[in-house]
């Protein structure tokens, strides 16, 4: 365990020094929260709704960091380490791919949790939002969304032949998901056809799940989202571990 935290500490420091994740996983969710707050204030989600638009958006805002870390940060980190032949050096040590993958996942879990706290803090302090769902359910849902998004990133980082390809794939995954899954553009205001297309993005399903959990809706209503996210986790995670390459 000590070995895990030693690695994590250094890798986290390196990531902070790199700044990209500070911007995309911490500053960006804060900025979007401020904008949505300015636009929607304390308006109800729809006329007669018992919760405000922002309360319903908490889940969506909390996934901006998950999306940045999972499909951008994580695959680029792995591809970069392979490209720089750092992984090759690890191959001649007693460490295992799953240990390294766990350390890297932990970095982005930390970013995600920090952004979750930031978004929650801002919504409750400045915009009068209240959390009416079950905290336990929400955290389980958040964990599932994180792990399944991260497993997509691990798969991309694991199988992309080089850094260039990894960054192209990461961009193709990141930008559409960031915009169309409801993380930065509210799903509820999208036209119906766009919503239907957005439903194909895994993060859209994740956000539906988080929305239900944060508003205290019964989770049975979103069981298909749970199933889709779990499927992503198992398939992509399995591929990532199975096809991991040191070089």
């Amino acid at each position: 365990m000590n070995k895990f935290f030693t690695m994590l500490k250094t890798e986290l420091r390196l990531s902070f020094r790199g700044m990209d994740m500070i911007i995309f996983a911490l500053c960006m969710p804060v900025a979007v929260t401020v904008i949505w707050g300015a636009v929607y204030g304390n308006k109800p989600a729809f006329s007669g709704a018992e919760y405000s638009f922002l309360e319903q958006s908490f889940g969506a805002l909390s996934t901006i960091a998950v999306c940045a870390g999972g499909v951008m940060g994580l695959p680029l980190l792995i591809a970069d380490y392979r490209n720089k032949k750092i992984l090759k050096r690890y191959k001649v040590t007693p460490t295992s791919p799953s240990f390294l993958l766990a350390v890297w996942v932990a970095i982005y879990v930390i970013y995600s949790l920090l952004s979750l706290l930031l978004v929650f803090g801002m919504l409750s302090l400045f915009f009068g939002c209240r959390f009416s769902g079950s905290l336990g359910n929400f955290l389980w849902a958040y964990l599932l969304v994180m792990l399944s998004m991260f497993s997509i990133g691990l798969m991309v980082g694991g199988i992309a032949p080089d850094l260039k390809t990894a960054s192209v794939i990461a961009s193709i995954l990141y930008f559409p998901m960031l915009i169309f899954s409801g993380a930065t553009l509210p799903y509820e205001v999208m036209p119906r056809t766009l919503q239907r297309a957005a439903d194909f993005l895994p993060l859209t399903q994740g956000i539906k799940l988080l929305k239900a959990a944060s508003l205290g809706f019964p989770l049975e209503a979103v069981w298909n989202s749970v199933a889709i996210m779990s499927a992503f986790l198992i398939i992509c995670g399995g591929i990532a571990v199975r096809f991991f390459r040191w070089e």
Binding site: M7, T10, L14, Y81, I86, V92, T93, P94
Partner: peptide, 30 residues
Amino acid sequence: FEQVGVQFQESNYPDKIKVRELCEETACLY
């Protein structure tokens, strides 16, 4: 590789890592 040390021809390390950090990261694996 618990008992074997290797120095490759090319040196590979992450950007912005310090000497102490690289040593720590290596040492913790053994």
